[in-house]
Amino acid sequence: MHGFEKKGQRMVALCMLGCLLFNFPVLALFNVPATFLGVPVLYAYIFVAWGLLIALMARVAEKRD
């Protein structure tokens, strides 16, 4: 039961992290007319951050208790 609670808490923390990453003001930092490897910074940021968040979720979700 303890492991369940811990996992739940980690997941909630990830959700909060996501809310932070994909909202004002963090998004505004990347809303600039520049490119990263040819891709506009905002788009590159969103997809990279999204991918990282999913990777973290996978790590937490698949962890055995």
Binding site: K7, G8, L14, C15, G18, I46, M57
Partner: peptide
Amino acid sequence: GVGFLPIYIGPTLMIALWWV
């Protein structure tokens, strides 16, 4: 531009809460 993305990012955030 990016206006379509919240439709998919939102569920990603929600799914993190699915465990609970």
